[in-house]
Design a protein around this nucleic acid. Structure first.
Lengths: 209, 209
DNA sequence: TTCTCATATAGGATTAAACATCTATGTCTT
DNA sequence: AAGACATAGATGTTTAATCCTATATGAGAA
């Protein structure tokens, strides 16, 4: 699980409570790792049992005590171990691609009715990405200034955004090319993208159905 | 859940057993939707309770009975409903990006030690994608020829591959650009990709640590 | 005055999935 | 003769995550 390691990564910049962590997740990594509030609390509790974190209970008046988590030496070791370990290839499950795979069972109009909102969604994602650095910088300047260590840290933070933009642009232009082909009733596959494709001949199809 | 709908999609081409389905998943959609064997059986059982499928038990000698699942009218209706419903935006969790985000805590060499295997992995993925149409076509010609309906069906199947290739290429060239920048100790963010980025000045950083 | 928002933590229920293991047997290879 | 592989199905356990709800209270807005 990476939630644990993401938490360790943040705690390594300084101690935080569950509440703090939720805010940090939402304002910095939500574009590639969303975290549920209750999940954060539960994970934090488990990590304290593991010995990766140490809890400091800060009493407050008229409010539940803040439980501030500090990273321990074991936690730091685990973070380093994980950060330097190449990850096994992810298998990405994509529900939209399931729709595409079975889209032959729909009419052209219905297919476009799926692709057009999806393309529009991608454009919105790109817009949101455009605003992430603004929000992120505000946040850094206000509350977390003391946690920005160096331009090099900042570089890696922004790389994750770059990755998102690259991805979203690639998806968008692919979707647009699909929309164009369908509108032109041109059901051909890009030879450039899929070179090993032999064209199936008519006799390969069961035209009975 | 899309596993249900993927199963409905396949059953709509013709009745299949759990065992058949596992093979079909592994040879056609594994590049964007892997399915666990036990998960398939359980889902199939649930769907039969739902009324989306009907079970036909085919006795065999010296072997467990085959339980062949047929799609019902309700199942077909549900499939259509789902296929024509635009999906809410997916939030993609990416453990590798978590590593990138916290890579500032590592040395350049250690970062390259993550990125280089990742890039190599991507190249392999692209190689595998190159062979998918070959395997897929063999499969179609042998066992599932009767299930290929039309060039249009085939078009959508191959679109899912196109998408994978587009994605993998985008990721690979991004990774290569990151590797290059790090090797040159050039920690700059692409202005073309992230235009809204104001450069942080030295006084914005806490140089104490 | 009521309502929402912010602060702060936490438990219950449910879900999708992964992982391991089990039951049977036929065929093919070493 | 032993082992691997294919056929065919199924259960138990654990994990990560989501959703909903509960407990407290202060501050500010409608």
């Amino acid at each position: 699980m990476s939630l644990e390691h993401a938490i360790l990564g943040f705690l390594n910049y300084g101690p935080l409570s569950g509440y703090d962590l939720k805010k940090v997740f939402d304002t910095s990594v939500q574009h590639f790792w969303s975290a549920d509030q209750s999940q954060i609390y539960r994970t934090l509790a488990r990590m304290a049992e593991n010995g990766w974190t140490r809890v400091e209970t800060v009493p407050q008046e008229n409010r539940p005590d803040r439980k501030v988590y500090h990273i321990t030496d074991e936690g730091r070791a685990e973070l380093r171990r994980w950060l330097t370990t190449p990850l096994p290839p992810e298998e990405n499950r994509s529900a939209p691609l399931v729709q595409v795979f079975f889209a032959g069972q729909l009419s052209d109009e219905e297919v476009l009715h799926i692709f057009k909102p999806a393309a529009e969604q991608m454009r919105q994602v790109l817009q949101i990405y455009g605003q992430v650095p603004v929000i992120f910088e505000e946040h850094i300047r206000r509350e977390y200034a003391h946690k920005v260590h160096s331009p090099r840290d900042f570089f890696f933070w922004m790389l994750t955004l770059e990755c998102g933009v690259v991805n979203a642009r690639a998806m968008l232009s692919w979707m647009e090319s699909v929309i164009e082909r369908i509108e032109n009733r041109d059901y051909t596959i890009s030879k450039e993208l899929i070179p090993n494709l032999k064209e199936l001949k008519d006799e390969d199809y069961d035209t009975e159905r």
